[in-house]
């Protein structure tokens, strides 16, 4: 029975890692690729470790595997955020079909200070001016 559950979890984890790879391949923009790698990739690796925890059936192995999963869960988003920020500042282009970018002129010349957007200035509607034809 445990074997069956581990096998299912292995399959789901493998599916997610494959989806992450496909995402890295297909998606047209750095930030979208980071979505794929951080979410699907972390879940895939985490599920593999979970299957290992179930399969080994020893408390010490399971404890270490769970610690590994928790570590992945906490560090992957941090890494993605840092990379996204660095990528944006270094000029990684957004996908051409991106709707709008509220961050575009908020950095000062040095790149260090980032001004906030006061509530009145928030973009409320999602359409781009040249969207209306479609």
């Amino acid at each position: 029975m445990i074997d069956f559950i581990s096998a299912l979890i292995v399959l789901i984890g493998a599916a997610f890692t494959l989806i992450a790879g496909i995402g890295l391949f297909r998606l047209p923009d750095v930030y979208l690729r980071m979505h794929a790698a951080t979410k699907a990739g972390t879940l895939g690796a985490g599920l593999m470790l979970l299957a290992l925890a179930l399969d080994a059936q020893q408390l010490e192995v399971a404890a270490r595997a769970i610690a590994g999963i928790l570590f992945l869960l906490f560090t992957a988003p941090i890494a993605a955020h840092l990379l996204g920020r660095a990528g944006y500042l270094s000029g990684s282009p957004l996908w051409t079909k991106t709707r709008f970018d509220e961050l575009s002129d908020k950095y000062d010349a040095d790149g260090r200070k980032l001004t906030g957007t006061p509530v009145e200035d928030l973009r409320r509607d999602a359409t781009k001016p040249d969207d209306r034809a479609t």
């Binding site: 890692t17 992450a20 990739g41 690796a45 990379l83 270094s90």
Partner: peptide, 21 residues
């Protein structure tokens, strides 16, 4: 860009973890 390649490296580390598991 370089950021793309770093995302790929991070993904490879995750794949390594999955493989070792």
């Amino acid at each position: 860009t370089l950021a793309d390649r770093v995302v790929a490296l991070d993904m490879m580390a995750l794949l390594g973890i999955a493989f070792i598991g």
